[in-house]
């Protein structure tokens, strides 16, 4: 397993086309840490599945948008994906990436016991971006995202997992590490740096 220590640009390739993030328990702090650190000229779209209660309002999205330099919004069905925008899955809907690079939402049954599901996002994103996809698993108390992370690896994409020792809840990162042999295991600080470095290439 490659660790991202010291040689920060070693793993960074400029050929990536999108970033998909899965996060659960402890996610608010993690997102509040990473998103504000991204530069306004960040040039990839970011998709985020964050497990939150189905009746949550859009306060969270608004708050993340307010504290970030790049735009954070709730993903809308059929909208065209553009770089430098963070698309958050709406509560109670799966977030899918369509073959024509648009967003699709779905109320089909929960996957890995949850809706939205990280696996659904990862699996559909990999069909569109293939080896140009970066999948990131952050803190969480379930196993969602592991199957999706395996698909990303199989397609030649890059998988990054938050170092379980630094995660508020370590079940999800540990499950992803066991299942998918991630390329990088990093702290939130390092993940932020890694994403910023993507931009410089």
């Amino acid at each position: 397993m490659k660790r991202f220590i010291g040689k920060k640009t070693a793993m960074v390739d400029s050929g990536y086309a999108a970033v998909a993030v899965g996060v659960s328990t402890g996610g608010l702090d993690a997102l509040k840490f990473i998103l504000p650190r991204l530069p306004e000229n960040f040039n990839l779209p970011i998709f985020i599945v964050y497990h939150i209660h189905k009746t949550s309002d859009d306060f969270l999205v608004c708050h993340l948008n307010d504290i970030s330099r790049i735009r954070v919004k709730q993903a809308e069905d059929k909208e065209t994906i553009i770089p430098a925008v963070v698309y958050m899955a709406p509560p109670d809907y799966h977030l899918l990436i369509e073959w024509d690079c648009t967003i699709a939402l779905s109320t089909s049954e929960p996957v890995s016991y949850t809706r939205p599901s990280i696996d659904v996002l990862f699996e559909t994103a990999v069909d569109v971006y293939g080896e140009k996809l970066i999948g990131i698993i952050l803190t969480g108390a379930n196993r969602d995202g592991s199957a999706g992370a395996c698909k990303i690896k199989a397609a030649g994409g890059l998988v990054v997992v938050q170092d379980p020792e630094t995660a508020q809840a370590d079940t999800m990162p540990k499950a992803a590490i066991a299942a998918a042999e991630p390329d990088l295991i990093l702290s939130l600080e390092e993940i932020s740096e890694f994403l910023c470095n993507l931009n410089q290439n």
């Binding site: 899918l96 089909s108 569109v128």
Partner: peptide, 9 residues
């Protein structure tokens, strides 16, 4: 139909 969704089905 939206392909990503159909593919999952």
């Amino acid at each position: 139909y939206a392909k990503a969704s159909i593919k999952r089905r």
